[in-house]
Computed example of a mutant assay.
Amino acid sequence: MRLDGIPLWDGTEFRGPVDLTWEPDRITGIDAAPAGHADLCVLPGLVDTHVHLVGYAGDGEPPDFATWPLTTTRDEQVLHGVAHAQKAMRHGVTTLRDLAGDEAQVALRRVFDAGVLPGPRILVHGVVGMTAGHNDLFVPPAVPSPLRKPVADGPDECRKLVRTWARAGMDGIKLTTSGGVLSMGDKNAWRNYTRDEIRAVIDEAHALGMPVAAHAHSEEGIRVAVEEGVDSIEHGTLLSRDLAETLAARGTPVAPTLLINEAIAEGRVPVTPQAKAKAAELVATRDVLLAQAAALGVRFVLGTDANGHHVQFGDQLAEVVRMTRILGMDAESALRAATSDAADALGMPVGRIKEGLGADLIVLRGRPWENIEDLAAENIVAVVSRGRVVAGRLP
């Protein structure tokens, strides 16, 4: 397949008009050419490093976030996950990392990879969290196993859960080092895990070749995760100056999940009063800290926390725009954060339009590297995922 004379932004910079050719699933040629589509451009598919595929995907106001997983079968939930992944793909988000997955999301990854169903590239991280920790408090206390998510307490149990997730086919581990917003009866500042437990999780995961993403809102939660050597920070809301300097020096990616915390804090989505209050407390001081971190060179990447209840799949485009407003990034830096930088953070051979890499492309009206507002769903002309047109039509 090919596009002739189309202006190319390749994931790092503008290259001018090119003739672009690919065959599933590999870009085969990029050659300078006379301009043929002055009002259009092509850029790499976006990469969202932080999503939760299993959530309500139907129309209208979503059902209660806490009870929906307890009142639907796992089979039904998986189909909602398929719908979310395909919706993201049609909006140009062609790579997704699920950060609270289990065997269901691994099954989605395998089905999409095998071409059984059209779908984006998926990575899956299993969560290692403690009893009464952030990940354990999404389910009401009276609900017994097996509906509760697995927990691990003590270094040995933590190692065992990492190994269990490795056996299940996970790509990585998510570790909780602070409390959270949507978890019930939780506080953002609560410690999650001792250093010995955190060290055991990271050591075991790295021994098995699995990167570790750390959920951390509080300064102390970020600090222990950074000092013990995690591979990415999720949220990073109360990021202090000294920690920002350390992260910038190491090049550790941070996914700031801006829209979801704003929506919860402002009550624009159905949440409990407690969750709204926790988010409002975080957002009140977040913007100055994250803008400071960006100015210090922290490597921010696209990560939305999309789940279908509070942030929709397809809202990734708005999140990139929001990154320019809150973090002070220019349009081109924000696009890199959503393409090449995000792909590099995940170790995925995408995020750039380059010979030999995967053929994930967005054909768009406008010039989003100059005007980030052009990155909008209504401007999408076509989406190519794994070399095949999955939305719109090629010009």
Rank of each mutant, 00 (worst) to 15 (best):
residue 7 P to T: 03
residue 383 V to F: 05
residue 121 R to H: 13
residue 203 D to T: 10
residue 137 L to V: 03
residue 215 H to F: 12
residue 69 P to S: 05
residue 372 I to P: 07
residue 32 A to F: 00
residue 148 R to N: 05
residue 185 G to I: 06
residue 213 A to F: 12
residue 215 H to A: 11
residue 115 G to L: 06
residue 304 T to V: 00
residue 104 A to S: 14
residue 123 L to W: 10
residue 182 L to A: 09
residue 390 V to T: 04
residue 26 R to D: 09
residue 74 R to Q: 07
residue 74 R to M: 06
residue 325 R to Q: 13
residue 138 F to A: 10
residue 63 P to E: 00
residue 317 L to D: 03
residue 155 P to G: 04
residue 7 P to D: 08
residue 275 A to L: 08
residue 242 D to S: 09
residue 344 D to C: 05
residue 97 R to Y: 09
residue 121 R to L: 12
residue 156 D to M: 13
residue 177 T to Y: 10
residue 171 D to Q: 10
residue 81 G to W: 12
residue 383 V to R: 01
residue 1 M to P: 08
residue 144 P to V: 03
residue 247 L to G: 14
residue 68 W to G: 08
residue 123 L to H: 11
residue 210 M to L: 15
residue 104 A to M: 11
residue 322 R to H: 10
residue 218 S to T: 13
residue 105 Q to W: 13
residue 57 A to I: 06
residue 334 A to F: 00
residue 82 V to R: 02
residue 296 L to Q: 15
residue 336 R to W: 01
residue 39 D to F: 04
residue 157 E to C: 02
residue 246 T to F: 02
residue 356 G to A: 03
residue 388 R to V: 06
residue 151 V to Y: 09
residue 249 A to F: 09
residue 130 M to P: 08
residue 332 E to A: 15
residue 275 A to W: 07
residue 116 V to E: 14
residue 215 H to I: 06
residue 137 L to H: 05
residue 176 T to Q: 11
residue 390 V to C: 04
residue 195 R to S: 04
residue 364 L to V: 03
residue 32 A to S: 04
residue 139 V to C: 05
residue 119 G to E: 12
residue 26 R to T: 13
residue 242 D to K: 00
residue 321 V to E: 03
residue 384 V to Q: 01
residue 96 L to P: 14
residue 184 M to D: 11
residue 179 G to F: 12
residue 71 T to F: 00
residue 230 V to S: 08
residue 326 I to P: 10
residue 126 G to Y: 07
residue 185 G to D: 06
residue 282 L to I: 02
residue 77 Q to V: 04
residue 229 G to H: 13
residue 288 V to A: 14
residue 392 G to Q: 04
residue 8 L to M: 02
residue 88 A to W: 06
residue 355 E to Q: 10
residue 269 V to S: 01
residue 326 I to K: 11
residue 270 P to K: 10
residue 232 S to T: 15
residue 335 L to Y: 02
residue 246 T to I: 15
residue 308 G to I: 00
residue 334 A to Y: 00
residue 147 L to N: 12
residue 115 G to F: 10
residue 94 T to W: 06
residue 107 A to S: 10
residue 363 V to G: 01
residue 15 R to H: 01
residue 365 R to W: 05
residue 234 E to F: 03
residue 278 K to T: 08
residue 238 L to N: 15
residue 172 G to P: 13
residue 105 Q to F: 12
residue 387 G to D: 12
residue 188 N to C: 15
residue 13 E to I: 11
residue 323 M to C: 13
residue 393 R to Y: 01
residue 210 M to C: 12
residue 152 A to S: 06
residue 306 A to L: 03
residue 159 R to K: 09
residue 156 D to P: 10
residue 129 G to Q: 07
residue 16 G to S: 02
residue 392 G to F: 00
residue 139 V to K: 02
residue 175 L to S: 09
residue 390 V to A: 03
residue 163 R to P: 06
residue 126 G to C: 11
residue 55 G to V: 04
residue 60 G to E: 01
residue 41 C to G: 02
residue 189 A to L: 09
residue 350 V to N: 11
residue 85 A to F: 13
